[in-house]
């Protein structure tokens, strides 16, 4: 029997995942918690085989940070990151943290039970790429890593000069990136463009 811990701050998600898992007689949900910060503590009891970890959890705890700590201290426990946000950097960060799987709640090609079984067999189950979400006239897969960085910093409220300083580029280059983004998305206003990215959950505004 595989013992599963669900870490998700949404009661609905917890209920949804639990009800799916309990349809499989080989799987059992041992606990559900809202904050990833408590996940490492739970692992001390050595009563879990697999964790379904949300990325943004209660108490501003990052599931990715918790996953990394758990993989360092309890390598035998498998971790599948679960999220509804198609944020561009999550996939890479989950791999770096040592997670065994990644599943998009709304965009997953495979169902969660299949992912769980494959992970328990020792496979690594990751989507090939982040889901292609529409942002204005463009798809999320059309933007470069640097463009995502610029949009993220705009969403955090940084000025062009501050962005330039952080990325070690000139303010003119920052302006170029912004214009490129607006051209791709078809937005005329920078604020609307950033709001669209946030709305589509392609980036996370640190204040929300």
């Amino acid at each position: 029997m595989t013992r599963i811990l669900i870490v998700d701050d949404s009661r609905q998600s917890q209920f949804f995942l639990k009800s799916i898992i309990e349809t499989d007689s080989n799987l059992s949900v041992v606990a559900t918690i809202a904050s990833a910060a408590n996940a490492e503590m739970y692992c001390l009891g050595r009563t879990v085989d697999l964790i379904l970890m949300d990325i943004c959890t209660a108490d501003n705890a990052s599931g990715l940070v918790a996953a990394k700590k758990i993989k360092e201290n309890y390598p035998e426990i498998r971790v599948i990151m679960v999220t509804s946000m198609p944020e561009h950097s999550f996939l890479g960060k989950a791999r770096e943290a040592g997670c065994e799987g990644f599943w998009y709640k709304e965009y997953g090609e495979e169902d969660i039970l299949t992912v769980i079984h494959q992970v328990m067999e020792g496979k690594k189950v990751f989507p090939k790429e982040t889901p292609a979400i529409s942002v204005g006239l463009a798809k999320s897969t059309e933007f470069t890593e640097r463009e995502y960085e610029v949009v993220q910093m705009l969403a955090d409220g940084l000025s062009r000069q501050e962005i330039a300083d952080r990325l070690d580029i000139s303010p003119r280059t920052v302006r170029f990136y912004i214009e490129e983004l607006k051209t791709k998305t078809g937005h005329e206003d920078t604020m609307k463009m950033v709001a669209d990215f946030v709305e589509q959950k392609l980036i996370i505004n640190n204040l929300i």
Binding site: A31, I33, A34, S35, N38, Y42, G45, A58
Partner: peptide
């Protein structure tokens, strides 16, 4: 209320691990 819930979760998880 949210803060209380978060603290209660810590108490609950601590209890779960003995």
């Amino acid at each position: 209320a949210k803060d209380r819930e978060l603290l209660e979760e810590i108490l609950s998880v601590a209890d779960m691990i003995g």
